[in-house]
Design a protein around this nucleic acid. Structure first.
Lengths: 145, 145
DNA sequence: AAAATAAAAGACTTTTTTATCTTTATTTAA
DNA sequence: TTAAATAAAGATAAAAAAGTCTTTTATTTT
């Protein structure tokens, strides 16, 4: 199993791509995004529509339209994307799938995974959408293949 | 997204249950296991058949038959179960799903997730199947609900 | 040898995830 | 005000994961 769903992988890659490509203002179209992150265009469209409805990214129709990020969106952390797409199971769920697993009723892996989950949550909370722009511009980080 | 697939969650819970229930020798049947970990019986049967084929657990047909663990199996770590069921994507895959993500061609989250992945791998490598028996016997750890 | 027991195997169904294709609505610019 | 551009929405489809049910095979006990 992967850490994130395919949908969430595409979502994160797309948002970072939009951030990087529109850092100088302007918008970017779905075709260019799908191509830039190597994802199926129409499937990605659905994902971005959803993120747009949830206010995580912005969009505009018509000529010169496309996707972009507003001031608010730029300050969001990666966990906002993950929670919007995959929910909070990764941060709060039991590793062994037990609904009632808790401090007082722990599964065998409860304590160990509590630590790991909080590390993941902390990492995704700390990393902001816009903070990868520079390295992406320099070609030091990859979002496709 | 959860950390493990549902199949893998059942697999881990079932193997720990078998270990605990057969610690004194003897075998345990699929019905009792499914009931003990709150999983669908026939679905679990398939999972255990697979683990049995792969030598991670043992089984015997006929009256007084059932599932059990041999000497070798008891020494295995949880990562053996995870790798058998979910493969090694959790330990080696790119968080953003990029096939060619690597040290020289890293995704934006490569370094952070390298650490997290190795912590998970280390945890699962360290924990042995038999080491939960005592706490399970004392009712201090839960495998169902 | 027959009956009973229990896992193994096979066929099938349902649900979820991932993906594709077509049509509609909105906006801009000529 | 019409044509072009572009996201939004809807309808399917394909693939994978999860779950169920039935039949077969192997083993043991009587």
């Amino acid at each position: 199993m992967a850490v994130f769903s395919k949908t969430c992988e595409y979502a994160i890659r797309a948002v970072l791509f939009i951030s990087h490509k529109t850092a100088a203002g302007g918008k970017i179209g779905i075709k260019e995004i799908a191509n830039g992150i190597d994802s199926p265009e129409h499937f990605l469209a659905k994902i971005l529509q959803d993120l747009s409805r949830k206010g995580i990214i912005q969009s505009a129709k018509g000529p010169n339209g496309g996707f972009y990020l507003d001031e608010h969106a730029l300050k969001l952390s990666l966990s906002a994307i993950v929670e919007a797409v995959d929910g909070d199971a990764l941060f709060t769920g039991c590793a062994l799938g037990l609904k009632q697993c808790s401090e007082v009723n722990p599964c065998p892996l409860h304590n160990q995974f509590k630590t790991i989950r909080s590390e993941i949550h902390n990492l995704l909370n700390t990393k902001k959408i816009g903070e990868f722009n520079d390295e992406l511009a320099l070609g030091l980080r990859c979002l496709k293949k």
